[in-house]
Nucleic acid binder design. Structure first.
Lengths: 346, 346
DNA sequence: CTGTTAGCGCCTTCAT
DNA sequence: ATGAAGGCGCTAACAG
């Protein structure tokens, strides 16, 4: 390691200017009781001497880190990286820093990540739950200590925690109703772990739409898997091997929907006429696949911004954090060719 | 903010156990000189009392943050989020933390991010350059202080900085040669800012392949834009309006290639027979578009892991960081239908 | 193997 | 408007 110049501290500045370190400390901030001129001199000297404040010392003293932690299932998904980008923007503008980690969809790793965040004394934590998280004991330590905890997308209902999400029930209800309007009479549904609100609510919306429209529900048409591309492929075979095939499929995520479509296309199924398709997320691939995929659009970037803003506002204003600050963001049904049956009147 | 129990410190543990704080400090680590039994007692007491180590105090004392900074152009790109995921994995396993920020392709923001990283005393910095970064003065402070700096993908050649990237020249050369083999005689090329190695090298590979195969180069066929989807759309029109249209296009990224293909398909251009296409990145969309896009695959996740590992190894072993540790990762030509002309013998 | 001591750099009363 | 002094919690000598 090369020999680096020693770090300059507020004492070095104080010495050079023949003033006290306390004054320098004040001068570096926007302290009210400080002479404008001395402040100017301090700033000049600091710049000249290459001073940089030591956040550890400052944090130690102030008992706050100016760090916000984020735990997401995966960083490399189109939706999640949008969310992260939104969070980063808001957090960065507020001069906070971001610790980011991924649970890789495993509760075990989520627990260990949470512990690391806790030990690193983040000022706040933003979480979207892993696939199989069954309880949130690992977040209790935050709640008990009054460290703000905000959930987004894959949320957990808790008195003390705001949640940012969309109305998954309604979105699923609408998209299923749309398939019914198109004439679908046997609609399959592929969803994920029902522990997660996002999937449970989508499944609930699907079922309610069937019921309200008097379309019979057949549980061979309900497939629960991990919504991966591989799972989509398998689901396609499963559905095609059914004694009576479905004439529509609503998949709880686009990635899985698209691999399912691709598998079916290989077997010469005509989409949408043999089987109509609908997905969820408005993934970039959804308007590349042919036919383009009907889906639900909701803005990850906006969700990230919103969640981060709630966190930052709380941190800055120091008000109590409550579930009542939860926000339901807008989502939108995007109708594309994959669900438009030829015979339909719509 | 709810009234939280006071933080317990090593002194509290020391008092309770009637030993010294130093011993507690040792017991909490894997200090060699520590009685197994006392260590066990310390750990037990710590757990019972709800102790958590104070990283600020520790960092202040040790003058190291255990934080690695990452600056990327965008977090929400398929490739970059793969890279980040790879970095996160390695860094997390090594018990380091990650500060992540995005330059949003702007040098100005990159400069300010770098400054924030510097002030936050990251132990190391990993960077992929913004679209328009013209010099790296903002990273000199790191180099001068011996803070390890590692570039990946969009790199900058520097004596002190390892770089992790692929052979963009060769990949572009190969993919262009492939188009020529398919019978293309007028091959257009869409690329990005030639300040960035990734684009300059791809363009160079393209040009050399033309030259080596005696295919004339025509500079109306070379388009430099920002490689966005919008730009791909515009480029399509530009190319179609040429007095003599190209019969092949090599685009320096898949996103742009695909929007370009979509625009051309709308104008009834037959791909690959009228115009063959090749992209770069093996983006998920590249095997959804029809015809599937010939492209260059290189693994973002692996690049992230590799770069992070070099950083971690350096931090742990404390050896000198040198450009000689640079690594060129493998990339692979993936041939798909978008470039397979019917008449060709291949 | 354990204890003593002395800071790391900053902020914040309290005093002037 | 500025200064003096103490301590945030931890670790690394040094001493035993």
């Amino acid at each position: 390691m090369s020999d680096q110049e020693k770090e300059v501290t507020i004492y070095d500045i104080a010495n050079k200017l023949n003033i006290s370190a306390a004054t320098v400390s004040r001068g570096l901030k926007d302290h009210p009781a400080i002479n404008k001129n001395t402040k100017k001199k301090i700033l000049a000297a600091a710049a000249e001497m290459g001073y940089r404040s030591n956040s550890f010392a400052s944090n130690l003293r102030k008992k706050s880190s100016h760090i916000i932690g984020v735990i997401v299932p995966r960083l490399n998904s189109s939706f999640m990286s949008d969310v992260i980008a939104g969070i980063e923007k808001v957090v960065n503008e507020a001069n906070y820093n971001l610790f980011i980690s991924q649970s890789l969809e495993s509760m075990k790793k989520e627990v260990s990540n949470a512990k690391a965040m806790f030990n690193n004394r983040v000022d706040g934590l933003m979480v979207s739950l892993a696939y199989d998280t069954s309880d949130i004991a690992h977040f209790e330590s935050f709640i008990n200590r009054g460290i703000p905890l905000v959930f987004f997308d894959r949320i957990y209902e808790h008195e003390k925690c705001p949640s940012i999400y969309i109305n998954n029930y309604k979105a699923a209800y609408d998209i299923t109703s749309h398939l019914i309007e198109q004439g679908c009479k046997r609609i399959a549904h592929i969803s994920g772990n029902q522990l997660r609100n996002v999937y449970a609510e989508r499944t609930r919306g699907y079922q309610q739409a069937l019921k309200d429209n008097h379309v019979p529900f057949d549980d061979t048409l309900l497939i629960i898997n991990d919504l991966s591309a591989r799972a989509g492929n398998e689901a396609a075979n499963q559905l095609l091997n059914l004694p009576v095939r479905p004439d529509g499929v609503f998949v709880a995520n686009d990635i899985c929907a698209i691999s399912c479509m691709q598998a079916m296309k290989k077997q010469d199924i005509k989409i949408p006429d043999d089987i109509a398709f609908a997905g969820f997320n408005n993934d970039p691939t959804s308007c590349v696949i042919e036919p383009n995929l009907t889906t639900i659009d909701y803005k990850g970037y906006e969700m990230g911004e919103t969640a981060a803003r709630i966190m930052i506002n709380h941190l800055v204003n120091n008000d109590d954090l409550q579930k009542t600050q939860s926000l339901i963001l807008r989502s939108e049904l995007i109708i594309r060719e994959s669900s438009l049956k030829k015979g339909s009147k719509t």
